Simulated assay, not measured.
Amino acid sequence: MQRPDTARLTWGSATVVLATVALLLLSGTTTTPGIAAACAAGLLLGVLVAVTMPVRAGRVKTSGAVPPDPGNEEVRAAVPRVRAGTGTRTGS
């Protein structure tokens, strides 16, 4: 069995909570066995939803490299190289 992903956990948890609340409100039970049965039914329904959810086919395939954004291009300017000679002060 595969590890559950975020979508399965979310849908399963939401199903458990909503089904349990709905069963408790609709049945109107106040006894301990009735509440336990509603909780167990909600839990089973949530597990059923999480297990039977369709699996994603896989990663999205792209057609090669993504071109860079036109605004993020590097700008280079032609500048003459300056070399420090023996008579040049470089730490002032």
Rank of each mutant, 00 (worst) to 15 (best):
A7P: 00
V51S: 04
A50K: 04
A41F: 12
L48K: 06
T62I: 14
T88G: 08
A36I: 10
L23Q: 08
S27W: 03
L43Q: 04
T86V: 14
Q2I: 04
A37G: 13
A50D: 01
Q2C: 09
N72T: 13
V51W: 10
R59S: 10
R3N: 06
P70H: 02
W11M: 13
T10E: 09
G34D: 07
G42N: 03
A65P: 13
A65Q: 12
G71E: 14
G71V: 00
T29S: 15
T6M: 07
T62F: 14
G64W: 04
V79M: 07
V82A: 07
V21Q: 01
S63P: 09
G34L: 05
M1K: 06
T20L: 02
V47H: 02
T31V: 12
E73F: 12
V21N: 04
A77H: 00
A40S: 11
G34R: 00
V51I: 14
I35P: 03
V82F: 12
M1H: 03
A36E: 06
T31E: 15
A78S: 08
A77P: 00
S92E: 12
I35T: 08
P70E: 07
S27Q: 10
A19N: 05
G12T: 13
P67L: 06
T88P: 06
E73C: 06
V75P: 01
L24Y: 03
V21E: 06
A77D: 02
G42T: 04
G42M: 04
V60D: 09
A65F: 13
R3E: 10
T6E: 07
A36N: 08
V79H: 07
P68C: 01
P4W: 10
L9W: 15
V66R: 15
A40I: 04
A84N: 15
G42E: 01
G12M: 09
T15V: 02
T90R: 14
T32H: 09
G85K: 09
P67A: 07
T31S: 14
T29C: 10
P4A: 00
P80Y: 05
T6I: 11
Q2R: 11
C39M: 02
T86Q: 06
T29E: 02
L9H: 08
D69W: 05
A77K: 00
L48F: 14
V82K: 01
P68H: 08
V75C: 00
S92P: 11
V82W: 05
A19T: 15
R83F: 09
L18T: 11
G64T: 02
V60H: 13
L24T: 09
E73Q: 10
T31D: 15
G34Y: 01
E73G: 08
D69H: 06
R3Q: 09
S63A: 15
G64E: 05
T10W: 15
A65S: 08
R56W: 12
S27V: 06
G71S: 03
P54C: 02
L45T: 15
V16G: 03
S63F: 07
V60F: 14
S13C: 05
G58R: 06
P33W: 02
T32F: 10
T10L: 14
P80K: 00
T32W: 13
V66D: 13
W11I: 10
V17H: 05
V55Q: 12
R76G: 01
P54W: 11
D5Q: 06
P80V: 11
T20V: 10
A19W: 08
C39N: 04
R76P: 00
L45W: 04
R83D: 09
K61W: 13
A40M: 05
T31F: 10
P67E: 03
G87F: 15
D5R: 09
